[in-house]
């Protein structure tokens, strides 16, 4: 990580549990981040607008205001990446946070590697494929200029919808893409309804059959239950 980072990035960690802030600060500092800490929403907003961190790591259950309010306040003025930390398993909370403008989420307890991967994904600026126009990951390669998808060097024929979804996932490599986002981008639907949801599941299933080495255990397109899909990065 240190190799890629020119200057030290500033991270704001917001959690009401002191022990969690303590371990996040220790871990993130050792990975090259300067860490600011806030224990409640009020302090978080104050620190955010005075120090302009590069990333916000935010717990949803805060003592003063709901974390989702913090996301809204930040999003009014800044597009800084936001990662949500939550103990809640309920997917509606995650969706609400993502809808409010969060970039990704992690459910506590989590492995520090997972957090770092999320940070890398949301902070990624200009991946190599954006310059070359060719995305490569393990046996999969996608040539965006020629709309050519290959698995192990063999061309795979995707329908336009399948291709568009794959491209959307690649553009958000490593980041969760919600059902809503896909429906909006691919089908121009703002509301999810049964017909479209079904179409989405079928398309993903077909896409997996075409590009996954083992569609029963997807390696590229990961399901985020109840939330959406994520293209696994760094395979």
């Amino acid at each position: 990580m240190k190799r890629h980072v020119k200057k030290r990035l500033k991270a704001l960690v917001v959690d009401d549990e002191k022990s969690i802030r303590r371990f996040l600060t220790a871990a993130l500092s050792s990975y090259g981040y300067d860490v600011l800490e806030a224990e409640n929403a009020g302090k978080a907003i104050e620190l955010f607008f005075s120090f302009h961190p590069d990333i916000l790591i935010l717990d949803l259950g805060l003592p003063d205001i709901d974390g989702i309010e913090v996301i809204r306040k930040v999003r009014e003025k800044a597009s800084t990446p936001i990662i949500i930390l939550s103990v809640r398993e309920d997917e509606t909370d995650k969706i609400a946070a993502l809808d409010a403008g969060a970039d990704d989420y992690l459910t506590k307890p989590f492995h520090i590697e997972e957090l770092l991967a999320r940070l890398r994904a949301v902070l990624r600026r200009g991946s190599s494929w954006e310059q070359t126009g060719i995305f490569r990951c393990a046996d999969l390669s996608v040539d965006f200029d020629r709309r050519l998808v290959e698995v192990k060097g063999t061309e795979v024929h995707l329908t336009p919808t399948e291709y568009d979804i794959l491209r959307l996932l690649i553009r958000n490599e490593g980041r969760v893409v919600t059902h809503q986002q896909i429906l909006r981008e691919i089908w121009n639907k703002d509301e999810s309804f049964e017909g479209v949801d079904h179409l989405l599941r079928v398309t993903i299933s077909n896409l997996r059959n075409k590009i996954e080495p083992n569609p029963e255990r997807p390696a590229f397109i990961i399901t985020e239950p109840g939330v959406g899909y994520r293209l696994r990065s760094g395979i």
Binding site: E194, P215, E216, P225
Partner: peptide, 24 residues
């Protein structure tokens, strides 16, 4: 409505470490 294959996929993903390369 769920794709059963997806459910099994998510379960296997969650168990990845514990399955430790076991053939499933």
């Amino acid at each position: 409505p769920c794709d059963l294959r997806e459910i099994i996929g998510v379960a296997l993903e969650e168990l990845k470490e514990r399955l430790n390369g076991r053939q499933v």
